[in-house]
């Protein structure tokens, strides 16, 4: 029974993939929009039937009038509900990585070219859909949230876009695959920083955290994206000299290495401890390198290095 259901679902997914192929930008059109009456719509039909019976029994043409008017409204609602979705463009937006346990934000952009759209609802059922409006010729950034439960890529699958506007009698919807995904880093777990055992050559220094690259002030240079923000020369910035970064020279051979092997606990625990270590060291402005089985990241103190480390931790051991 279950396998039958699964097969059914797989077939449905295949059909959807053919009909609405995954794309970073999707325009909703008649191939992609489905429409059926809602429960309220059926209730409305019941109301019309009651009115019609009244009209027939009382031979009252005005009652006929209203019954037919509502019936026409019902028919017109099909077109209008379809219209309240058709032509809408949905576009993928890059997401910001989160840590396990946080709410992952999956942003996307709604673009209204020819008309405005009201009361759109987007989301991944069974989670509650969130609403959005888009003005004509405008675009709206919509942020959808999902709980991040596991590290790695969070791929929520096909997104449901629906509209019951204007009358709520019909629901028009589509399932679009915008290739949305968000990187989930392991949850940081506080603890001792798992440093690599450097062996004899570093004996004289001992295995301590060395404030590498912070002792020798070298001068200033202009800021580049990726520089550690803690080294910004704010005084100069306030004097209007632009964004400058204080440059320090680290001493060679004193790099800190984080090592998977020296962390304690199971795989996930180790990754969590390393995550915490990466965050702590970066915050303190240390340059550090990281070694995971099969991965080695050369020491650096830049934000992009931190991100690369976290990424490696998030994706460690997962099929790509």
């Amino acid at each position: 029974m279950r396998s039958l259901l699964a097969a059914q679902r797989a077939r449905w997914q295949r059909w959807l993939n053919r009909r609405i192929p995954p794309a970073r930008e999707v325009r909703l059109d008649q191939r992609r929009i489905f429409i059926i009456p809602t429960r309220q719509g059926l209730g409305f039909l019941l109301l019309i039937a009651l009115l019609l019976i009244g009209a027939i029994n009382y031979q009252n043409n005005l009652a006929y009038f209203l019954a037919f008017w509502l019936l026409s409204l019902f028919l017109v609602a099909i077109l209008n509900t379809y219209r309240s979705l058709s032509g809408l463009v949905l576009r993928h937006l890059p997401s910001v990585p989160v840590f396990v346990g946080e709410q992952a934000c999956l942003p996307l952009e709604l673009i209204a070219e020819r008309r405005s759209y009201q009361a759109l609802a987007l989301g991944w059922p069974p989670a509650q859909l969130s609403g959005a409006d888009v003005e004509q010729g405008g675009n709206t950034r919509v942020e959808l949230f999902l709980p991040a439960a596991k590290r790695g890529w969070l791929k929520p699958g096909r997104l449901r876009v629906e509209s019951r506007f204007p009358l709520g009698l019909f629901v028009a919807w589509s399932w679009v695959d915008l290739d949305q995904q968000v990187l989930v880093y392991p949850a940081p777990m506080a603890g001792a920083i798992p440093l690599a055992d450097h062996g004899a050559q570093d004996d004289d220094e001992g295995v301590r955290i060395i404030p590498a690259g912070v002792d020798d002030y070298q001068g200033l240079r202009t800021y580049q994206p990726g520089d550690n923000k803690r080294r910004l020369h704010w005084k100069a910035y306030s004097r209007g000299q632009g964004l400058l970064v204080k440059e320090f020279a680290g001493l060679a051979g004193r790099d800190v290495w984080l090592d998977f092997a020296s962390a304690s606990g199971g795989v996930e625990q180790r990754l969590s401890r390393l995550t915490h270590a990466v965050l702590t060291l970066h915050q303190q402005g240390h340059a550090f390198g990281m070694r995971l089985p099969g991965v080695e990241l050369a020491p650096s103190d830049s934000a992009s290095h931190r991100d690369a480390c976290l990424r490696a931790l998030a994706l460690y051991g997962l099929p790509t």
């Binding site: 029994n57 009382y58 031979q59 006929y64 037919f68 008017w69 019936l71 026409s72 409204l73 017109v76």
Partner: peptide
């Protein structure tokens, strides 16, 4: 919306056969 429905309504009104009270 009501105006959009108006022509359709007139059509139904004109053509829908009137039957006696049920």
């Amino acid at each position: 919306l009501l105006l959009q429905a108006l022509p359709l309504m007139l059509l139904l009104f004109v053509f829908f056969p009137r039957i006696g009270p049920l």
